[in-house]
Computed example of a mutant assay.
Amino acid sequence: MDLQLKGKTALVTGSTGGIGYAIALGLLKEGAKVYINGRTEERIHQAIQRLKSLVPDAEVKGIAADFSKVEEVEALIAELPAVDILVNNVGIYGDRPFESTDDRQWFFDFEVNVMSGVRLSRHYVAAMKKKNWGRIIFISSESAINIPEDMITYGVTKTAYLGLSRGLAKYLKGTNITVNAVLPGPTVAEGGGMFGEIARKKGITVEEAQLAFLKEKRNSSIIRRFAEAEEVANLVVYVASPLSSATTGAALRADGGVVDAAF
């Protein structure tokens, strides 16, 4: 299937690894020009080399920016003033015991996980309106619905993305600009992520560590495994395409059935 993405320009934040990298790769395979983003030039260079090895004719560039710093966001916007597709993927997470998580950490997490998407969307929507075409996609999480008790700050920021995406979609009613949120579930990280460390400490495989996590924390999973980043990216790439023109204001789950609800 041709997703009609040739000639489109996309920005994918937080895309030197993981789901963001898989999204960038999927867009490049469909012929889009993609700007990837990370916090360091070294990580960006490495990601670009990998992407070009997989898609030799890829039009891919990188812009370094730390989304906790407003001035770096402004510099990114100055370097890339307009895009057709914006994928707000950048995000941070970690164990945040509620009673010992101070205001500074709350504001820091909110700055990166929510305000990054607010600032970029607020800027890029103007050019999209002039062209009367665009795609804005927020990468939320099943944690937006199943708020983890050990990562309340993360869950709250991801819930905020659901409200932001729905409200922005309504604001853009009657245009050819769609706005959606995609909710991944537990997804395989490069090198095993935190499960690689857990596996080493317990003397088990990464897969065994992941299965133990699902049993204890996400027992509602229907696929009974972690998703691959590419599986999440496939949904995002479709939503970014002109073929998804009737899908907007939606919270689209790629969660492996973790959210225990029919709708």
Rank of each mutant, 00 (worst) to 15 (best):
L76T: 05
A160M: 06
L76E: 01
V125G: 01
R96G: 00
F98V: 13
G155P: 04
P97G: 09
S143C: 13
L162Y: 11
V83F: 04
F110Y: 05
M115E: 07
L120T: 03
F110S: 02
V87D: 03
W133V: 13
P97R: 05
T157L: 11
T157S: 13
D150S: 15
A144D: 07
R104S: 08
G94M: 02
M128D: 00
R104P: 00
R122T: 04
Y154P: 04
P81D: 02
S116R: 01
D66N: 15
A65Q: 07
Y154K: 09
F138D: 00
E79M: 02
R119K: 10
E99P: 02
T159F: 04
I139W: 03
D103H: 07
S121W: 01
V83T: 08
I137T: 08
T101W: 00
D95E: 05
D66C: 00
N113P: 01
A144P: 03
A127V: 04
W106R: 05
E74M: 04
N132K: 06
K69T: 11
F107K: 13
A126K: 15
T153Q: 01
E74H: 13
A65R: 14
I145R: 09
T101K: 06
S143P: 03
P81C: 10
W133H: 06
Y154L: 11
D150H: 15
K69A: 11
A82I: 01
S121F: 03
L120E: 01
I145E: 14
G155E: 04
I145K: 03
S141K: 06
